[in-house]
């Protein structure tokens, strides 16, 4: 039997292994001043060699808000997502998250930020390692950020599985033993491990069947209501974007259009 799961799974109970934070120039993990956006992107430019994939994009996302991002394939949506996540460093521009410009941080300084700014990608199998059990992959970000303990760790993993609509018993499975929809839920569970504030969702439902898509959309709405998450939701399914978003940005040839 799994130990009972607390009703509001917002905080990792105890984390004795947590290292004393080094002198990170970071704002506290909760929202900036009222009215201040959680994410503020200004004049973002992303280049691959001589190709300019993102050409001066600016937008804000506030706490608890879903901003949709649509546009034809190749217009620069994924490049924008990667630059916000600092997975690809932008050529120029600012990515302010919790009032800190991420473009000014080095990899070590970015580590604590990455707990609160998490990606969810399209391919549910591709974003999980095929050779490791689901529970170990969800535990990984907890271990990485010193939030794992023998008592609270497994409990937190069970809680995350439960929150994302998965039977905690599925934790002992490997990705190929889960359906596409279950895998995508496991990917979301891992993204939620370190209580993020903002999820960057790049085509999270595109690989899923109609009857499973609705379940993921409902899950995203439930998580947002329960945890106050913000989303940047990228999808070519315009009806899904309309359904989920408070505001929709349209991109073409690397720029936002109205």
């Amino acid at each position: 039997m799994n130990p009972p799961v607390p009703a509001t799974p917002l905080i990792v109970a105890d984390s004795p292994a947590q290292p004393t934070p080094s002198a990170e120039p970071l704002a506290p993990p909760h929202a900036g001043p009222a009215g201040q956006p959680l994410l503020s992107v200004r004049d973002l430019v992303v280049r691959y060699g001589t190709t300019t994939a993102v050409d001066g994009v600016s937008f804000d996302i506030h706490a608890g808000e879903t901003v949709g991002l649509v546009g034809p394939s190749g217009c620069g949506k994924s490049s924008t997502a990667a630059a916000v996540l600092q997975l690809r460093r932008p050529h120029s521009g600012e990515v302010r998250f919790d009032d800190v410009d991420l473009t000014a941080l080095d990899e070590r300084q970015l580590r604590p930020v990455r707990q609160r700014l998490q990606p969810v990608f399209q391919d549910p199998y591709g974003s999980l390692s095929p050779r490791r059990r689901i529970r170990d992959q969800i535990a990984e970000p907890l271990r990485l950020h010193g939030r794992w303990s023998h008592s609270a760790g497994p409990r937190r993993v069970a809680e995350l599985l439960d929150m994302t609509g998965l039977n905690p018993a599925l934790g002992s499975r490997f990705p190929h033993e889960l359906s596409g929809g279950q895998c995508q839920r496991a990917g979301i569970a891992r993204a939620l491990a370190n209580t993020p504030r903002l999820l960057i969702l790049d085509e999270p439902i595109s690989a899923l069947d109609a009857s499973l898509r609705a379940g993921i959309l409902n899950l995203l709405l439930d998580l947002q209501d329960g945890l106050g998450l913000s989303y940047l939701f990228i999808s070519h399914d315009i009806t899904a974007v309309r359904h989920l978003s408070n505001r929709i940005l349209t991109m073409r040839d690397g720029r936002l259009v109205r």
Binding site: S211, L212, T239, H243, L244
Partner: peptide, 25 residues
């Protein structure tokens, strides 16, 4: 019927929960 109910349309109120089917194909 179930397939159609799971798809949001222009008439679906935004951010309402969509109909889902239990289980998987």
């Amino acid at each position: 019927t179930a397939l159609l109910a799971s798809l949001p349309t222009a008439d679906t109120p935004p951010r309402t929960r969509l109909a889902t089917l239990p289980g998987r194909p």
